[in-house]
Amino acid sequence: MIEIKDIIKTYTTGDIKFDALKGVSFKIEDGEFVAIMGPSGSGKSTLMHILGALDTPTSGSYYLDGQDVSSLSEDALADIRRDHIGFVFQSFNLLPRTTVLRNVMLPLVYDQVPSEERIKRSEEALKAAGLDEAHFSHLSNQLSGGQIQRVAIARALVNNPSLILADEPTGNLDTKTGEIVLGTFQRLNEEQGKTIILITHELDVAEHADRIILIRDGEMVSDSKQHEKKIINLNSGGKA
């Protein structure tokens, strides 16, 4: 479960202070699929960094699975990211010239998981993310955009995190491949009960989630349940 209360983040450049977040509070239950939406400059990236334990708020509290993460040290935050959070980035961020399997394994390397278990868990994650087994030993730069993003999703899944944080995951993909990636998130959410937070500036993308939190000028504007979300049926969709 995620609970943030009165999160304020202030950036200071010289004498100029800028409030990126001006007191945002919400709660996300386990198994929810939430989209955080807002135009650029709204503070949604700052919010995502705080939710992803990449950054700490200036004030306010952030409870992740009951633990207050808002004032942890850099190395303690690294542990939180490793154990609780899976990231999917807009620009994929796979290691170049490295096999798919090794890319997915990377979080387990930092978790000191024994090598046999690493391979087993990475293969499971890749299957869950919907990548063909034929691609497991390919180098990451030999894959298409959709395949790369599935590898990135597998990497986010492999540590069995309580939260998957996807930052504009379809931003670098065409509409069709983007839909397949969103469909993958929907399936992981429904079938495996993963908590997923999707950061986007496109309503069209946000509409695939169950709940949309709208951020503007550092403040939460609305928080609404979607009763008729867009559903992607992967089986009829074909492969990326």
């Binding site: 190395d75 961020n93 930092y110």
Partner: peptide
């Protein structure tokens, strides 16, 4: 640099 960022995001500590 991006690789370092990624490694840190997925749980690498300074020491690693």
């Amino acid at each position: 640099t991006r690789e370092i960022g990624l490694r840190k995001a997925i749980g690498a500590k300074r020491r690693d």
